Simulated scan of single mutants.
Amino acid sequence: MSPLVLHVTGARPNFPKAAPVIAALERRGVRQLLVHTGQHYDRNMSEIFFRDLGLPEPDLNLGIGSGSHAVQTAAMMTALETVFLDERPDLVVVYGDVNSTLAAALVAAKLGVRCAHVEAGLRSFDWTMPEEVNRVVTDRLSDIVFATSPDALVHLAREGVDPDRMHFVGNPMIDTLLRLRDRFDGSRVVTELDLPATYAVATLHRPGNVDDPATLDRMVAALRRVGDRIDLVLPVHPRGRQQLEASGLFDHPRVHATEPLGYLEFLGLVAGSALVVTDSGGIQEETTVLGVPCLTLRPNTERPVTITHGTNRLVTTEGLAGHVDAVLAGDGPTPGVVPPLWDGASGERIADVVVDVLASAD
């Protein structure tokens, strides 16, 4: 039987990264299996993305759901171990830095199954971020690491990763953005919220921003100051919904909550906005390519290329309103040169490496 590649996804950021890889491998006739752990189980956080991105329905949906990091990761490992033993994949491909990524890499390593990590080498050097732990451990366990930017290669080399394991392929998430850009459409939300022509978008969900009451209070005050200047739309992530609704943020007449949005609708909203306020890694990359000013409410970023080559700036809650004023005055971050290999062909480059690896194992 021909070699089997098993893809593990689990959360919204994984899907636009996986879609071009799966499509490129399908064109090469590679046998594949798509597993969705169910880490994101809300329809608009998961199911709608499969439709928007043209992803095949998962062959297996493990339905893990939410829980603490330990509970969620352990449940994923238990379920994935059964899947790997039943299916006997020749290669497991994992994406990004979520708990599903770590769980699959750990199980593959324990079972002696080769693992490839797409989006390897990103580092914030902030060990308070669960994602940083996931990134570093996954890269250490993976047999093949696919880097999206040159700085990622530097980090991997410093950590002693064998150069033969490292491949600079560009950013497959940007493949998806470029492929679907003509279909972006945020008009429904604009109409329903009666937004003016100039508006901003915010996305906030990281524990460092929404879990600590004092930090949340400062963030809410900062967002209300933004609302004094410009209408602000906030699709509410399930993770921070309760805290944000209880904070009184949405009592401000120009701060608008909406449900999580599908890929095409959300990026349509972003593409039409004057600026984005976020703590998301992926949105820093998407706004870089879209040319939309991005203000990242974090002290660090694992994607510095979005600052050197894109429209991203790191800001504090205290300085946020001033940065918004600068953007509205035309003095904010402006589009730079698109990062190298963010050209829509990353999935093809990844597929070429995977095919070579599978062939060399025969």
Results as ranks from 00 to 15, higher is better:
299 P>D: 00
147 A>E: 12
326 A>L: 07
83 V>I: 13
240 G>H: 01
102 L>D: 03
15 F>Y: 15
46 S>H: 12
98 V>H: 00
128 T>C: 03
92 V>I: 13
186 G>T: 03
226 V>T: 12
99 N>D: 01
61 N>V: 02
200 A>K: 00
114 R>Q: 11
21 V>E: 01
357 V>I: 07
89 P>E: 06
157 A>P: 05
115 C>Y: 10
197 A>Q: 11
53 L>H: 11
324 V>N: 06
212 D>Q: 14
297 L>A: 08
236 V>C: 01
135 R>Y: 12
8 V>L: 10
52 D>V: 03
338 V>C: 07
56 P>Q: 13
138 T>G: 05
198 T>D: 14
58 P>K: 01
9 T>I: 15
326 A>H: 05
88 R>E: 11
123 R>L: 12
280 S>D: 10
333 P>I: 11
248 G>H: 02
177 L>K: 14
356 D>H: 08
215 T>R: 15
259 E>G: 05
165 R>H: 13
101 T>D: 04
34 L>N: 03
118 V>L: 14
249 L>H: 04
342 W>V: 01
157 A>L: 13
316 T>K: 08
289 V>N: 07
78 T>N: 05
178 L>Y: 11
166 M>E: 07
47 E>K: 08
352 D>R: 13
198 T>R: 15
353 V>A: 08
354 V>A: 09
48 I>P: 02
271 A>N: 10
40 H>L: 01
294 C>S: 06
312 N>R: 00
235 P>G: 07
332 G>Q: 10
344 G>F: 05
260 P>H: 09
91 L>K: 02
3 P>V: 06
341 L>A: 05
112 G>T: 13
101 T>P: 04
274 A>V: 00
341 L>G: 05
176 T>E: 08
224 R>M: 15
135 R>E: 11
281 G>L: 05
133 V>A: 11
271 A>F: 06
337 V>W: 00
68 S>Y: 09
260 P>A: 07
243 Q>I: 00
91 L>I: 11
46 S>K: 08
281 G>N: 07
59 D>C: 09
342 W>A: 03
110 K>N: 12
111 L>Q: 10
58 P>M: 12
50 F>M: 09
186 G>C: 12
196 P>T: 03
347 G>F: 03
82 T>L: 02
111 L>E: 09
202 A>S: 12
331 D>W: 06
271 A>D: 14
28 R>P: 04
103 A>C: 00
61 N>E: 09
173 M>A: 15
222 A>P: 08
177 L>W: 09
237 H>N: 02
331 D>T: 06
149 S>F: 12
156 L>R: 06
83 V>W: 01
227 G>N: 06
106 L>W: 02
49 F>S: 01
315 V>D: 07
90 D>H: 14
130 P>A: 06
316 T>H: 04
15 F>K: 07
278 T>H: 12
17 K>T: 04
7 H>F: 13
157 A>Y: 09
190 V>W: 04
155 H>D: 11
236 V>R: 01
71 V>Q: 13
135 R>N: 11
100 S>D: 00
174 I>V: 15
215 T>M: 14
194 D>K: 14
157 A>T: 14
8 V>I: 15
46 S>W: 03
271 A>W: 07
122 L>Y: 07
76 M>T: 06
309 H>F: 02
